[in-house]
Write a protein that binds this DNA or RNA. Structure first.
Lengths: 189, 189
DNA sequence: CGATCAAAGTTAACAGCGCAAACATACCGG
DNA sequence: CCGGTATGTTTGCGCTGTTAACTTTGATCG
């Protein structure tokens, strides 16, 4: 009965089962309610409260998992220039999860998800520092993150056409190149 | 009884009153439900349905209004370099509205809000073309929009500290300058 | 002026939501 | 074997968006 056997009453590992059910529902674009997640896991509507304080807690767990996945995705991209493409691709492939990761007020300070987000930031900053040793790595990392984050959301919200992944990737590369090449005129502060 | 007199039963101009109530609630950070908006306007819970098909319709109207406001705000910024600062400031001053404007799936194609968003894009593109006559104005406008949009959301979601407006403005300027100065290494595609 | 009709409100009701309290079951250590 | 605790269940509350049926009102027209 190690991890996920259900013996009729006790579930075995409901915590993990809930996470899995919730992830599936996000992936399938279903409405996502606590009750629906519970039902999908084959359990009563209030059973999740034994494992998560409230809906936010479940969402935080999902978000943290999402940040880990995103981190792996970025790490797999390897090359600096492809980071943005990977970031936007992740957002468009798993839009509901991405919205859940961001798009929340998210005021919990000492959370697991906060650490995951910080990890990503550190990772990107290191890559930036390596690629642009002369630049202000901190500022450039912020700008780069904001750029791809903005591209992700604008595609997600239909402000930029997101139909064809290849077209999206091209737009990411093109706009990134354009702003990096923009050089002098009115940039300062 | 011209615009907003209430004669006991008929309201006078409930449509506008609902918009006003909803805007106030967004501004005050209140939970925003259709019922609450109706109550605030001094009207029964289902009265709004005489003027808006559903909650989404009300939200779209609010979003459209928000886009007009944002447009004015950007126009007032005038100088190209201050566009981003104005954009992010707007987002932080009216976070609930900003989330409503974006942050929705928003699949309605022929909407008033779509036009408003397109107007902003056009406006920014024109400014970009004027400031950087040599560049690919389209790509640069996309990148610029994405950059400030990303900065706005990252601040909104607590991924970047948003306490002091002056500090935020400085970060916008600094990161913008940083990415525009980044020039050559790994940009292309 | 009075009848009528549509516009713009009302109440009642439904299903679904997050969540809390009280109760039931089953495993685990004494 | 027995009791306690972790982990389920049922029940119920107040909220949500939305529909249906009813009522009030102001406007139009003979």
């Amino acid at each position: 009965m190690s991890t996920s056997a259900r013996d009729g009453y006790h579930h075995g590992d409901l915590r993990a089962a809930l996470l899995r059910s919730a992830t599936e529902m996000l992936e399938e674009g279903e409405p996502f309610s606590l009750r629906a997640v519970a039902k999908r896991a084959g359990v009563s509507a209030t059973a999740p409260y034994r494992h998560y304080a409230d809906k936010d807690a479940l969402e935080s767990a999902l978000a943290a998992e999402g940040f880990r996945d995103l981190g792996e995705r970025l790490a797999a991209a390897g090359e600096f220039a492809e980071l943005g493409v990977a970031y936007v691709a992740f957002a468009l492939e798993r839009p509901a999860l991405f919205r859940l990761m961001f798009g929340n007020p998210c005021d919990d300070a000492n959370d697991e998800r906060v650490r995951a987000a910080v990890d990503i930031r550190r990772f990107v900053t290191r890559l930036v520092a390596a690629a642009f040793p002369d630049a202000d790595a901190r500022a450039l990392a912020t700008a780069g993150w904001a750029l791809v984050h903005g591209l992700a959301f604008l595609h997600l919200d239909g402000k930029l056409p997101a139909g064809d992944p290849a077209e999206v990737a091209l737009r990411v590369r093109t706009s990134t190149a354009a702003i990096m090449a923009a050089g002098g005129p009115a940039a300062a502060g």
